[in-house]
Computed example of a mutant assay.
Amino acid sequence: MVTDRHHNSTADPFPVPPLAARIFAIAGAAGHEARIVGGAVRDWLAGHKIGDIDMAVAAPIDNVAALLRDAGLKVIDTGLDHGTVTVVEDGQHLELTQTRIDVETDGRHAVVAFSDDWAADAARRDFTINALYIDSAGQLEDPLGGQADLDAGILRFVGTARQRVEEDALRMLRYCRFLPRFGGAGTDDAALAALREQAGRAAGLSGERIASEMSRLLSGRGAAVAVGLLQDTGLAGAALGVTLQSGRLTPEKDQAVAAVFGDDHPAWLVRLAVITRPGDAAGLAVR
């Protein structure tokens, strides 16, 4: 379905950066539809600062990469196995991914295949608020009701929560991270049940992926809510191998860390130190 373009009260269109505009033009001239997708669209609708731009294109990525190179753009094969390249021009960069479906998942990695079906591409995403697209005309495409969930403060998985978690266990940690920012209505019942039931799957994630996600989770304001959910669902023990002292990161302490460090890199380390029990630091570092 197509919805109104703006969740916030401004009448400004989505601020398409020059590199994204070039990709729209090059793909369109070849008969391929490209869209801006995911977090940038979500944050724009929510009135937050827009971060990195990600795009999707309904064409095999090898074909599109060749078109972009012919047009003089630098293309880096950062994730061809997953249908993704990084496009660079004049100091700008963005990730461009072919529309795709999962053909095999094991809870840690997915084998993907090209599909030009935008609905299928949306259906494989983690949360409804991330299955949002801006097309070349600036129109919002919202196939799964992500804007309504964003309006209502509902953070929910696309489709069946258990299936999304079984496909990639990291999504459970991502749910905890996004909840303070986008889940004002509280924890979705289906999501909470899936996190509690499937928490053990997080033990199979690599330390690198867990560290990357935890650094983001603990950097944001409202981290106390995220940490409480990690501990309550059993995710902390499975993913980190330790019990977190979640009660020590009170809202007051969380706000104090934010006041001193903002969202800078040291903030997450300070919060981690607050919730780590004496003697657990060495084991956490090994994990």
Rank of each mutant, 00 (worst) to 15 (best):
V2M: 14
V2I: 15
V2Q: 15
T3M: 09
D4Q: 13
D12S: 14
P15D: 12
P17K: 05
P18F: 07
P18E: 12
A21L: 09
I23P: 04
A25M: 03
A29C: 06
W44P: 01
A46K: 12
A46H: 12
A46R: 13
I50Y: 06
I50K: 09
I50W: 05
I50N: 04
G51R: 10
D52C: 03
I53G: 04
I53E: 09
V57F: 07
V57N: 04
P60F: 09
P60E: 15
N63G: 13
V64Q: 01
A66R: 11
L68D: 04
D70K: 14
I76A: 14
T78E: 09
L80N: 08
T84E: 06
E89N: 08
H93N: 13
E95N: 15
L96C: 06
T97V: 13
Q98I: 00
T99S: 14
T99I: 01
T99C: 14
I101S: 11
V103W: 06
V103A: 06
H109I: 12
H109Y: 13
V111S: 08
S115R: 05
D116K: 04
D117K: 06
W118D: 13
D121N: 15
D121I: 03
D121K: 05
A122V: 02
A122K: 00
A122I: 06
A123V: 08
R124I: 14
R125F: 03
D126W: 02
A131M: 06
Y133W: 12
D135A: 05
Q139P: 00
E141R: 12
E141G: 07
D142Y: 06
L144V: 09
Q147I: 03
Q147Y: 00
A148E: 14
D151Q: 13
T160K: 12
T160Y: 00
R164T: 11
E167F: 03
A169T: 00
R171S: 11
M172Q: 15
L173H: 01
Y175R: 02
C176M: 04
L179N: 02
P180I: 09
G183D: 07
G184V: 13
A185Q: 05
G186H: 10
D188Y: 01
D188N: 12
A194H: 07
A194F: 03
L195S: 03
R196P: 09
A202S: 14
A203E: 14
L205Y: 02
S206H: 10
G207L: 10
E208H: 12
A211N: 10
E213H: 10
M214S: 09
S215E: 14
R216Q: 14
L217N: 05
S219K: 02
A223T: 00
A223K: 01
A224C: 13
V225F: 07
A226F: 01
V227F: 10
G228K: 03
G228D: 13
Q231L: 06
D232C: 07
G234K: 04
A236M: 11
V242P: 02
L244P: 00
L244N: 03
Q245I: 03
Q245R: 14
S246A: 15
R248E: 11
D254V: 02
Q255A: 15
V257H: 04
A258D: 08
G262S: 12
A267Y: 00
V274Q: 01
I275H: 09
I275N: 05
T276S: 07
T276D: 02
A281N: 00
A281I: 12
A285I: 13
